[in-house]
Design a protein around this nucleic acid. Structure first.
Length: 597
RNA sequence: GGUUCCGUAGCUCAGUUGGAUAGAGCAACAGCCUUCUAAGCUGUGGGUCGCGCGUUCGAAUCGCGCCGGGAUCACCA
C-alpha cells in the first residue's frame, strides 16, 4: 500500500476530528520532501488554515501530532512555515527494501491483470521510401507504450497499418519502369526500401523539371503541377491498379515485397514488432458501408454531385468529406472502417494511434464522425500525438533528401559505440561476437534513450553534426550503471553472502541510502503515470535519476568491502534492487542492458 | 484568418492536479583512478522561466492580452 495514500486517508479522517470540517482529498497535497529539508514526505497545510482558524505553524504541528499518534511509521515531524515534513522510521524503509528484493517483478503488473485489452497502432509507413528519423520516433514510442501498458496490467495488441497503395507508390513504380532498367535489390545490392525510395526521389526530380518547363510556357504553378505528363501518367497507373490491371499489379506486388524485406531489417534492428499487420490495399474499402448507413440514418449529408459529408461545424471543425462524388473512399473512410472492425474483432477497450501531431485534426474528426454514427466506443479512441523531429535547418523532407535515414543513423550509433568502447579499453578479452552484441546494445540504447527521454508531444531537435552523447543523461549511462552493479552481485553469490537477512535495527541508513530507497519506492507510481499519460519520457527521466543517485552512492560507500555485515547486506540488497529496477525501466523503453561493459 | 501545440541556462531537455532558494545533461574551467567498472564522481561559472496585466497567502505552472515559432483547416494519406 502506497504510503502517500495512507497519509491522505488519515488526514481525511483526522481533519474533521481536529477542526470539525470535511475535506475533500483533492485539497490534500503531499509530495516528497525537498532535499534541503529534513523529512520524507511533506504536507502543505495552507489549504486547511480556513478551517483550523490558526496560523500555519500551529496547524501543521497539530496535524503532525495527530498523524504521529495514528501512524507508527512516522518517526517524527518538523514544521517549516506552512509545510509539515514527516519523517518515516528506518524500519519502514528497510521492510520495503525486503519487499523489493523478494518480488520477482518489482513495479510491474502482469498483462491481463487489469482485465483490459489495448490496441496500439504504430509505425504505419508508406511503402514508397525508406524509414527515417521521424519513423524511428514513432516506432520507439509505439513499442515503448505497448510495454508500459503491459506493465500496467493490460493486454496489448500491437498493429501496423501499412500504406501500400496510392499515388505515391505509383510514382516510384513509374520511375522504376522508365529509368530502372530492371534493377532489383539483388542486382544493385541495395536494400529494397532504399532502391524503391531512389525512384521516388527520381520521379520528383523529373516532375519538378516538367513543372518548371510548363511554367516557362506561361502556366501557373497549380496548372503546371496538374498538367505535367509525369503526374498524369502516375494517375493513370493508379487507375490501372484500381481496375486490377495485371501488369501494374504485378509490378506493385514486386516492389512492395522489396520494401517489406527492407523494413523488416530495420524493424528487427530496432527491436520492434507487431502482432498483426494490416495492408491498406486490403482495408481501403472498409468503412463505405458505415458511411452509407449514416447517410440512411440522416446523420451524414449528400451533396448534389453525390459526395458524402459529415458536418462537424458544431464541434468547431469543418465539413469533412467521407465519400468522393464518384463514390470512392478517402483516408477517413478507411479509418472509420478499420476502427469499427478492430473493436468488433478484438473486443478491445482502447485503441491508441501513435501518429504525429500533424494529424491531430484527422483524429479529432475521426472520433466525432464515429460518434455521429452512433458508436459510443469512439470515446475509447486515443491519439498519442507526438511532435516532429526537426533538424537545425527545419523539417525533414523525403523528396528533398533532407532526411536522416534510419538505417544509417543506427549504423552510426553502433559504430560510435564500438569506437568509444575500444578507446576506453572496455571489453578487452571478450570474443568478437560478444563484443559486437554489446556495441549494438549500447549504440541502440543511446539512440532510443535520446528519443524517448523527450516528452512525446514536444517537437524535438536533432543535430546530425553533433553526435548523440554517450555520457551524462544518456542510454549508455543507464547501461553502464547496470553493468557496474551486476559484478557486485555475482561476487556476492560467490562469497555466499547474497541473500543474508536484513535486520535493519542495528544499523543507521546514510542519507544516500535512504534517498535511493525512496526513489525505488516511487517506481511503481512512475510506471502508472507513464501508462496514464502515454509517456515513456517519465520512465526515462526516472531511471536516469535512479542511476545518478546510485552512482553517487557507489562512490561514497563500500559494498562488498563493508565490514559490518548488516550494513553490507543492506547495501547489497539496495544495489541489486537498483540494478533490477534499471533493467525493468530500460526494458519499458525497449532498451537492453548489458551484464558487463 | 479559424483551430491547436509550443517558448525555461550558450545548446539539448526536466520541472506544469499552483507550494519552500527553478533543476539535469552537454559544452567551458578546476579536481578525483595502487581500493567493488572513471561511459563514473566532486566543484566553479551560467536564468527577466518570451513580454505585460490579473487571480491567489503563494504563479514557470491558472486566466486574459500581446510577441515569436510549429502544425492543421484537400474529392492527398
Amino acid at each position: 500500500m502506497d504510503i502517500v495514500k495512507i497519509l491522505k486517508s488519515q488526514i481525511v479522517i483526522g481533519l474533521p476530528i481536529l477542526y470539525g470540517s470535511e475535506t475533500d482529498s483533492q485539497q490534500i497535497q503531499i509530495y516528497k520532501t525537498r532535499k534541503e529539508f529534513v523529512g520524507d514526505y511533506t504536507l502543505v497545510v495552507f489549504p486547511f488554515l480556513k478551517s483550523s482558524k490558526k496560523g500555519p505553524e500551529q496547524t501543521a504541528a497539530q496535524i503532525g501530532d495527530y498523524l504521529s499518534q495514528q501512524l507508527q511509521v512516522i518517526e517524527n515531524y518538523n514544521v517549516v512555515k506552512g509545510f509539515l515534513n514527516l519523517k518515516l522510521t528506518q524500519k519502514f524503509w528497510v521492510e520495503f527494501l525486503k519487499e523489493i528484493s523478494a518480488s520477482e517483478q518489482f513495479g510491474i503488473k502482469t498483462p491481463g491483470e487489469s482485465g483490459k485489452t489495448m490496441m496500439v497502432e504504430y509505425s504505419s509507413p508508406n511503402t514508397n521510401k525508406p524509414l527515417h528519423l521521424g519513423h524511428i520516433r514513432n516506432n520507439l514510442l509505439g513499442f515503448s507504450l505497448a510495454e508500459i501498458l503491459k506493465a500496467n496490467g493490460h493486454k496489448v495488441v500491437k498493429v501496423n497499418l501499412v500504406n501500400d497503395r496510392g499515388i505515391h507508390i505509383c510514382k516510384s513504380m513509374l520511375a522504376w519502369q522508365k529509368w530502372g532498367n530492371g534493377a532489383t535489390p539483388e542486382s544493385t545490392g541495395l536494400k529494397g526500401d532504399k532502391l524503391v525510395g531512389n525512384y521516388y526521389v527520381a520521379f520528383d526530380k523529373e516532375y519538378k523539371k516538367e513543372i518548371a518547363a510548363l511554367e516557362a510556357n506561361g502556366l501557373t504553378t497549380d496548372e503546371a503541377k496538374e498538367q505535367a505528363p509525369l503526374i498524369q501518367e502516375a494517375r493513370e497507373m493508379l487507375r490501372q491498379w484500381e481496375a486490377g490491371n495485371e501488369e501494374v499489379n504485378q509490378l506493385w506486388h514486386t516492389m512492395n515485397q522489396w520494401v517489406y524485406a527492407g523494413f523488416d531489417v530495420t524493424y528487427r534492428t530496432l527491436g520492434v514488432d507487431f502482432d498483426k499487420i494490416y495492408y491498406e490495399s486490403e482495408t481501403y474499402k472498409l468503412g463505405k458501408s458505415l458511411v452509407l448507413e449514416g447517410l440512411a440514418k440522416g446523420v451524414l449529408k449528400q451533396q448534389a454531385d453525390g459526395s458524402v459529408w459529415a458536418d462537424l461545424t458544431e464541434d468547431g471543425l469543418d465539413q469533412k468529406i467521407l465519400l468522393r462524388s464518384d463514390g470512392t473512399s478517402v483516408y477517413m473512410t478507411q479509418d472509420l472502417g478499420t476502427a469499427h472492425q478492430r473493436f468488433q474483432e478484438f473486443h478491445i477497450n482502447d485503441l491508441i494511434y501513435v501518429v504525429g501531431n500533424e494529424q491531430n485534426y484527422h483524429f479529432q474528426a475521426l472520433k466525432l464522425v464515429l460518434k455521429k454514427l452512433g458508436f459510443n466506443w469512439s470515446d475509447h479512441i486515443q491519439h498519442l500525438s507526438y511532435g516532429m523531429v526537426e533538424l537545425p535547418e527545419g523539417k525533414m523532407k523525403s523528396r528533398e533528401g533532407t532526411v536522416v535515414d534510419a538505417d544509417d543513423l543506427i549504423a552510426e550509433m553502433v559504430e560510435t559505440a564500438r569506437e568509444t568502447s575500444q578507446e576506453l579499453g572496455k571489453l578487452d578479452g571478450k570474443s568478437d561476437e560478444e563484443a559486437s552484441e554489446i556495441y549494438h546494445m549500447i549504440g541502440l540504447g543511446a539512440l532510443k534513450y535520446f528519443i524517448l527521454k523527450v516528452d512525446p508531444k514536444k517537437t524535438m531537435m536533432f543535430n546530425p553534426k553533433e553526435s548523440i552523447d554517450f555520457n551524462g543523461n544518456t542510454g549508455p549511462f543507464i547501461q553502464y550503471t547496470h553493468a557496474r552493479i551486476r559484478p557486485i552481485y555475482r561476487k556476492a553469490v560467490e562469497m555466499g553472502i547474497h541473500n543474508q537477512e536484513l535486520g535493519g535495527n542495528t544499523t543507521t541508513l546514510s542519507e544516500k541510502e535512504q534517498e535511493l530507497i525512496k526513489l525505488l519506492y516511487d517506481f511503481p507510481s512512475v510506471v502508472e503515470e507513464a501508462g496514464a499519460n502515454y509517456s515513456p519520457a517519465l520512465i526515462a527521466n526516472y531511471i536516469f535519476e535512479l542511476a545518478k543517485e546510485y552512482n553517487q552512492f557507489y562512490h561514497e560507500h563500500p559494498i562488498l568491502k563493508e565490514t559490518d555485515e548488516q550494513q553490507r547486506a543492506i547495501r547489497l540488497t539496495l544495489s541489486s534492487s537498483v540494478g533490477k529496477t534499471l533493467k525493468t525501466g530500460a526494458g519499458l523503453l525497449g532498451i537492453d542492458v548489458p551484464e558487463r561493459i
